[in-house]
Design a binder for these strands. Structure first.
Lengths: 219, 219
DNA sequence: TTGCCCGTAATTGGATCCAATATACCAATA
DNA sequence: TATTGGTATATTGGATCCAATTACGGGCAA
């Protein structure tokens, strides 16, 4: 999954990529209004490519478009967020299963490093980055592009709430997550797909239940 | 899930809805090139709303956009189609589970009628329509809009291959599907979610395996 | 014949202008 | 005072024009 940052892309794609980064990095709060002209000015472009970019982000679930009215940074209710997590519980084990046979030795080593770094780390943003890399790397062996894109969209749409929840829990409440990561890594390393699937399912499910205990991060 | 046909929508949405219908009804073969100007002329509009419509359909997986090059009716390889079905196997039981508690008596009666009509029917297009209505109706009790949309997209992107496969099997090879529909209906009716999930999983899985026996319908 | 190069036509992408729609504000009235 | 109606303004949607990119085809050389 190569992520080319602001390369030689067309204007609309460049704008979409840039906005996507800004949203995922938490610079925009969900519910924030997006005016086409503002974005256009910000990129020195006209409104045409901005509109295309907003459609792309709308399709990804990062932006909500309302006809004749405007665009907002997408917002999830607790119920909707739980829905996303339930989908993840069912779909990510499938993706992991497809990925495991093709994971390289280097990939496994990197996974181990990531699990260690997460445990040693105290910073929220760093944790989010490492956690994302850990899981997406564990899926990198899969050649199923459609499923991979779907999972990445699920991660993206829930990113904001994962951040808010991580902030709340400080650094203490993550012991379980770290254990699960190590268990998952062990199952992957010994090629036990069935166990890996089960652990991953439990990991996502437990996170969903934890998340539901903090409705204050939702509108 | 109300499907408003060509109502008072904005031009871009009207064009998208119309193209969607044409694609789903099989009027376009996968791989067919779509030129913006043709569509624009066909709808008496300019290319602007056509481009927006194509982006929407691209997001739904019905059209494939390539930057600076053009748009084509989306095409799936056998592998990709199997991927879609594997996702369906995992996700649709979840949706059914969320739907079952809220299905009305009228809904159940309609499901029974649909199962009967499918069995009595001989026509391919009619079968596709009834089968789709049967399953989507069984999900209609779910208030999970995001999951519902996702499932509908999965159905839409695979519609063309389901049609081709149904044509091949003529009307004889569907005994098993009819049995499964009746079993599913029975489980739903008696409110046995666990069993319903399992039957639905098996139903989709078996269809995937059958589909894989007919690689000739894929490019 | 086959492969490559280059020029022209076709097609998409972006900018600008105009139209349609929605929001916000203010006044008038119950 | 609260609410309704209407007008002005802000914002999005669509049409048209121009620019950039790509695809096609003929000519040339190996």
């Amino acid at each position: 999954m190569a992520v080319s940052i602001e390369g030689d892309l067309a204007t609309s794609h460049r704008i979409a990529a840039s906005l996507r980064e800004e949203i995922l990095s938490g610079q925009f709060a969900p519910g924030t209004r997006i005016r086409q002209e503002d974005i256009a000015e910000q990129f020195g472009a006209s409104r045409s490519p901005v509109r295309e970019a907003l459609r792309m982000l709308d399709a990804e679930g990062l932006v909500t478009l309302v006809a004749n009215t405007g665009a907002w940074i997408a917002q999830l209710s607790l119920t909707e967020c739980e829905e996303m997590y339930q989908i993840r519980e069912r779909v990510e084990p499938l993706l992991l299963n497809a990925s495991m046979p093709n994971l390289t030795k280097e990939g496994l080593e990197r996974l181990a490093i990531l699990a260690q770094e997460m445990e040693a780390n105290q910073d929220v943003e760093t944790f989010l980055r490492l956690d994302r890399e850990f899981h997406l790397l564990s899926y990198s062996g899969a050649s199923t592009a459609l499923l991979g894109d779907m999972v990445q969209r699920l991660w993206n749409t829930t990113q904001h709430y994962r951040r808010a929840y991580t902030r709340l829990l400080a650094t203490n409440g993550f012991k379980t997550a770290h254990y699960e990561h190590h268990l998952l890594l062990a199952a992957i390393t010994r090629g036990d797909a069935e166990d890996a699937e089960r652990i991953l399912y439990g990991h996502i499910r437990r996170t969903r239940l934890e998340l539901a205990k903090h409705p204050e991060v939702f509108p």
